[in-house]
Each structure stands twice: as C-alpha cells, then as structure tokens.
C-alpha cells in the first residue's frame, strides 16, 4: 500500500491525486495527503507518474508497513520503478527493453 508522500521532494503538483485509480489521495493547500490508504490497490502507478520520486508504495497489499524514508532514499528505492520502465530522462532506452517474446511459450 502507499506509505508516504515525501514532503522534502514533493512540489504539490497534484498529479498523484489525479492519476490514482482508486482515489486514495486528497488535495490540500500544501502537499497531498494519503486520505484513504485502505483503498490502495498496490498498483504502483502513482510512483510512475510522480515527477519528483516523492512517493513510495510498499509491496504489502493487505497491511500497512512502517517505513524508513531515509533508508529508502539511501537505497535508491524512491523512483526505482519509474527508472526500471524507462520513464526518466536518463533511462529512456529501457522503454523498448521488453524481452517477453523470448519467454512466452515456456
């Protein structure tokens, strides 16, 4: 489930509020809040659309997890999915990486 909006890097662009399919976030005067965490479906899509890598989705689908933001930043976990699919400037070449055609029919 979504666990954190990193106040240090969030620019209050509200993109996450818009793109979350299950409407988990609410706009505020400042940075968005996680208003309905239990509605989160752990799809990781908000991370992909956050231009600042300010969101972290824990892979635990059914329960909330305590997270350590400093450790996550250190481990380069923030934005790792976005980089893996090639949605940052310096990872663009990964967009065409799909090798499924070698794996199908196994």
């Amino acid at each position: 489930m979504i666990e954190v909006v990193d106040a240090a890097s969030c620019t209050s662009c509200d993109i996450c509020v818009n793109v979350c399919p299950t409407n988990v976030f609410d706009k505020t005067d400042g940075i968005p809040v996680i208003a309905r965490q239990s509605d989160c479906q752990t799809c990781f899509l908000c991370e992909l659309y956050c231009p600042e890598d300010a969101l972290y989705v824990s892979p635990f689908a059914d329960e909330a997890q305590a997270i350590d933001l400093i450790a996550l930043r250190k481990a380069d976990a923030m934005g790792s999915y976005r980089r893996a699919i090639g949605w940052t400037d310096d990872t663009r070449e990964r967009r065409g990486d799909d090798r499924s055609y070698l794996l199908f029919g196994h």
């Binding site: 989705v57 824990s58 892979p59 999915y81 893996a84 799909d98 090798r99 499924s100 794996l103």
Partner: peptide, 20 residues
Amino acid sequence: AVQRQMRMSQPNFFLPFDRT
C-alpha cells in the same frame, strides 16, 4: 540469461521481492 530477460520484461514482477 532468463533471469536477465525477466527483469527487462516485467519490472513490476520484481517490486515485491526487491522491496522486501
């Protein structure tokens, strides 16, 4: 070789593992 192809093909498959 297959492991490498898997990572390139389905980055989301690995999120639950890499993050735990």
